[in-house]
Nucleic acid binder design. Structure first.
Lengths: 233, 233
DNA sequence: AATATTAATATGTAGTTACTTAATAATGTC
DNA sequence: GACATTATTAAGTAACTACATATTAATATT
């Protein structure tokens, strides 16, 4: 057997993970020291350390200096979602992407938007509503506010041609983002543009971004009925 | 200046991140080699490597052997959600937790459940419905199927006393999980138990787990109106 | 010119050493 | 016994070394 003795740190991680799954290390248990595991598995402590870091980030174990490593008793399900720009998402499904600007005005930010940004004073913002279509069917209706103080460049953009979503993603990196999901009943504008009956349940993805402490944009993206968001494996 | 020259790899990461944000390294750009960055910032290549790994996992850069490191042009928003066990979630809000078993039967898995598990043949499963309450108000209604082949232990549990959620989390680790979110209109049982009007929009968290390829459990957790799921920062 | 071979290169990984840091345990002092 | 001090411990970090691997570029071969 020329099986390489090479042990990627991911292998070590999987070995430890397996032991946690099969209860060699049960919930609440203290694991051996990195050094001892390293000795047992025939690798360096750094390798075990790297594996443990990952397991710790996955939420499977808890590590404390001196205290050692413990298997978490209340494992949380940790799910990571990739939220691409809408055009990309639609194109990846193999559908044709279209985009329509619904409205575009300058307004002082209302309380709800100030709350999302965490600001005390209203600010002059660009308020744009737009519809993203997949194969000519409404896919996502977005209601967006953009702070023109942090992002004056948006004022020079023809939003009937390029979506704010896309322009922002390419031209305005953010340092902090807040993402939340909730359900909303279709009514008024959202029902109208998504061509659904009022009363249907719709999934909303709300995203707010800042650069430093300065608000950039906040958007309510309302998905058409049936939309599902699923985690990366 | 006795400022410690100690540079945690996270500092290096933040420095590179800052450069990406301020467009020193713009989207699509190729970054200098790890070695050169290391030389510039006065640290070892391994330290830059560790930082880059993190940035890569964050989705900010793409790395390829020989190809070098590039700033991603289509940055995705990557959000990580921790989904704790329901009791813990309620208690962390400072609310009183209660639990009620609604029903418990043995049934052959219907098509919808088979599809979620990815199995072809129906199997005898435990079908349990339960309600989690926060401060005596309905919080989450869960509709759960448990495969008794992989998890016979559940049959010995008095589900009126201990929630399946909790027992499973403590006694049945999984190796794979699928998580998805969607919106549902309140109707029938869900409306009744969540004490809401039929027609309200509800957020559903659907979770399915396996050990190896063997199904463990699948649950539709329907949250009370107003429930929001927000990402970890 | 088209294709196969080889060299060069940047990241990936692991080991070793050395030191830092936070938390616990042991000890000493009042 | 209560409290403060000190030692010990196990993880955290980083530098340096060495080699692996994937990919591109250069070169040789047909």
């Amino acid at each position: 057997m020329s099986a390489p003795t090479r042990r990627a740190w991911t292998d070590i991680r999987e070995e430890i993970r397996a032991r946690i799954l099969n209860r060699t290390y049960a919930p609440g248990d203290k694991l051996p020291r990195d050094e001892d595991i390293a000795a047992e598995l025939g690798c360096a402590r750094t390798t075990v350390h790297r594996a443990m870091q990952d397991l710790s980030q996955m939420g499977l174990v808890e590590r404390k200096r001196k205290g050692g490593t413990h298997v978490r008793t209340d494992p949380v399900t940790r799910a990571t979602f990739d939220i691409p720009i809408t055009r990309r998402e639609i194109e990846q499904r193999g559908s044709k992407y279209d985009y329509q600007l619904v409205s575009q005005t300058m307004e002082d930010s209302p309380m709800s938007v100030m709350a999302r940004f965490g600001i005390q004073q209203p600010a002059r913002m660009l308020h744009a509503k737009a519809l993203h279509l997949a194969d000519n069917r409404p896919f996502i209706f977005e209601d967006r506010w953009i702070d023109t103080r942090s992002t004056p460049g948006i004022l020079g953009i023809d939003l009937t041609r390029e979506s704010a979503n896309e322009w922002l993603v390419r031209n305005k990196p953010y340092s902090r983002v807040d993402v939340r999901f909730y359900a909303m009943t279709a009514e008024g504008e959202s029902a109208e543009h998504l061509a659904t009956k009022p009363g249907d349940a719709l999934l909303v993805i709300e995203r707010t971004t800042w650069i430093g402490n300065d608000p950039i944009t906040t958007v309510q993206a309302v998905a058409a009925p049936g939309y599902q968001l699923s985690a990366e494996t």
